[in-house]
């Protein structure tokens, strides 16, 4: 161009620098945003009740937030960049706010896409995850005390978590034991656990359960 032959004035120099800085910011921010989302979006996100399996969910959900707005307890939120779920998708963090298991499941009924099962018959059929006693070294019941908060707050009391007798170092203890068939993953136990970080946490089922075994021929044992 003719302009590049001319002596560079301060004005054009400033403009060049500004343009360079702008383009650099653009690249930097975009990349940072992507890396952030990629490194944080992992399999730990808990979905609202009635959610399709994660791969199907990510295709069906349009990120409209109708489920979030339908929740009367502000449990759900849409993931921003850097949250644990894919950006824009609904999730909840039980330690902050668990699912209160509304009987009419307003979040799932509000979903226009089918990413949440609009016809879910009962909140008891929800499968948000499964509670797992991950920190038994800190669990007060394991230390021989009778905390049992997780058992007492459970909305599916008597079914989802029970106290089972056990023995540690010759002492009789009562172990909080989750029954995955009944647990919906609402996270009320995680919310109320008295240890620093919750000793009992809700995990997606594929993280929280061992799964059925297979014999050496590859057939279900």
């Amino acid at each position: 161009m003719a302009s590049s032959k001319r002596k560079m004035t301060r004005r054009t120099a400033m403009q060049e620098i500004a343009r360079g800085a702008g383009a650099a910011c653009l690249g930097g921010f975009s990349l940072a945003a992507l890396v952030r989302s990629a490194s944080h979006a992992d399999a730990r996100a808990l979905r609202p009740p009635g959610a399709l399996p994660e791969p199907d969910f990510l295709a069906a959900c349009v990120r409209c937030g109708l489920c979030v707005q339908a929740c009367p307890y502000d449990t759900l939120s849409l993931a921003e960049w850097g949250a644990e779920a894919a950006v824009g998708t609904p999730f909840f963090t039980p330690r902050q706010e668990p699912c209160y298991m509304c009987r009419d499941v307003p979040c799932a009924r509000a979903c226009p896409t089918g990413a949440l099962d609009r016809e879910i018959p009962s909140i008891r059929d929800a499968d948000m995850g499964v509670a797992v006693l991950v920190g038994h070294e800190d669990c007060l019941n394991y230390k021989g005390m009778n905390c049992s908060i997780c058992v007492r707050v459970c909305p599916i009391r008597g079914d989802a978590i029970t106290l089972e007798p056990g023995e540690v170092d010759g002492r009789k203890i009562m172990i909080p034991t989750v029954h995955s068939r009944h647990c919906t993953g609402c996270g009320t136990c995680e919310k109320h656990c008295v240890t620093g970080h919750a000793s009992i946490r809700v995990l997606p089922r594929d993280l929280g359960l061992g799964g059925p075994g297979r014999n050496r021929a590859g057939r279900p044992a």
């Binding site: 343009r19 702008g22 653009l26 945003a33 960049w81």
Partner: peptide, 17 residues
């Protein structure tokens, strides 16, 4: 949230690039 950075990126792209 952090998403503002993408909006800023679009703004800078249109302004400078």
């Amino acid at each position: 949230g952090f998403g503002w950075s993408i909006i800023l990126a679009v703004f800078l792209l249109d302004l400078f690039v």
